[in-house]
């Protein structure tokens, strides 16, 4: 039995249930780094290359936090999850592709890294191959791995079903882990509907976005994100833009935005973006142009290293005021 360390950021927010179930089923213990803190950010800023975006720096901090607590760091090389886009070449952002290499170079005293390559372009069965490869590294036989893989798929399915019901990923994770009950979720008392689009690790990490979702809840706004939409709905949106983007998470954010801006009961759209994100320079402009066409209020919230919430708060308050006035005069 080994301790497998998983950083609580980046792909964690969408795919953790699968990998946790997989490793647990194989008899290992999964250790997750704690929620992002100032100390994690500081460590990340210290270790990561200077021109990386904040999420990548934070990832470094999370990995460092697992040193001494885990025998392995699970940092898969996420290449792609599907054949998608105009040339079928959609990938994750380049920094995801180089993630295992980056942490190896940047962080001292790192435990061995499990850097299984995940490239599902040829087909879904590639995931089982990746699992076999991962199982191999830990000395497991094919049969064992297959059983763990099946169990992991079932758990991930339960998680995805929660998302389909409108439960946001960070809450669905709490439910899967037994920290929260589904029936305890707050579903009443909202008088605005706001779609928040952007990358999971920016939207669901309250440290990075200085408590944006909580702030919206306080303002009585119910939050929807692209992650509660089915792939079918998301992919349908592709036809509304001349060309899809190259990056997986970017396409999800754009498609989600495109869907929500056509919904009458959605009052406005917020795009949360990490300062200096390359793909987002396109995502943000695209969403802005499309929102204008649909006459849907649009706000960009740009986050970086600042810990002060004043800037975000002022913008959110003003945005919510604006939506309420619009509603009242409609």
């Amino acid at each position: 039995m080994a301790k497998i360390g998983i950083p609580r950021t980046l792909a964690y927010f969408l795919y953790f249930p699968f990998w946790q179930a997989f490793f647990t089923e194989l008899g290992h213990q999964v250790v997750v780094s704690p929620p992002t803190t100032k100390a994690i950010l500081d460590r990340g800023v210290e270790d990561a290359v200077n021109d990386a975006c904040i999420p990548i720096k934070i990832y470094h901090g999370h990995v460092a936090k697992l040193i001494g607590k885990a025998d392995f760091i699970f940092s898969p090389r996420l290449v792609s999850l599907r054949r998608h886009g105009d040339f079928g070449t959609e990938t994750f952002c380049p920094k995801f592709l180089g993630l295992p290499d980056m942490i190896r170079v940047a962080i001292d005293k790192l435990p061995p890294v499990i850097d299984t390559r995940i490239d599902l372009k040829p087909g879904k069965e590639e995931l089982l191959k990746a699992c076999q490869e991962t199982g191999d590294m830990l000395g497991h036989e094919g049969k064992e791995v297959l059983a763990a893989y099946k169990k992991a798929l079932a758990v991930q399915k339960r998680f995805n079903q929660l998302l389909a019901k409108g439960v946001l990923p960070h809450l669905a994770l709490d439910i899967i882990e037994g920290k929260k009950k589904e029936e305890d979720l707050n579903r009443d008392g909202f008088d605005l509907n706001i779609a928040v689009v952007g990358y999971p690790y920016v939207i669901y990490d309250p440290y990075v976005n200085v408590g944006l979702l909580k702030l919206l809840e306080k303002e009585k706004a119910r939050v929807y994100t692209q992650d509660i939409l089915s792939n079918k709905i998301l992919n349908k949106q592709q036809k509304y833009i001349p060309k899809s983007l190259f990056w997986y998470f970017s396409n999800r954010a754009v498609y989600g935005g495109l869907y929500f801006m056509k919904q009458k009961d959605i009052d406005g759209i917020i795009h949360v973006t990490a300062f200096a994100c390359g793909p987002d320079s396109m995502v943000d402009k695209l969403l802005e142009i499309e929102c204008n066409k649909h006459n849907k209020p649009y706000l960009t919230v740009s986050v970086d290293e600042h810990s002060g919430e004043a800037g975000v708060r002022t913008r959110i308050e003003a945005f919510v005021d604006m939506l309420r006035y619009r509603r009242a005069t409609r």
Binding site: D304, R315, A318, F319, M322, R326, T329
Partner: peptide, 13 residues
């Protein structure tokens, strides 16, 4: 427009 704020922007960083 028509006395209601329909859009706004602030300087970023």
């Amino acid at each position: 427009r028509n006395g209601v704020v329909t859009d706004f922007a602030m300087n970023t960083v």
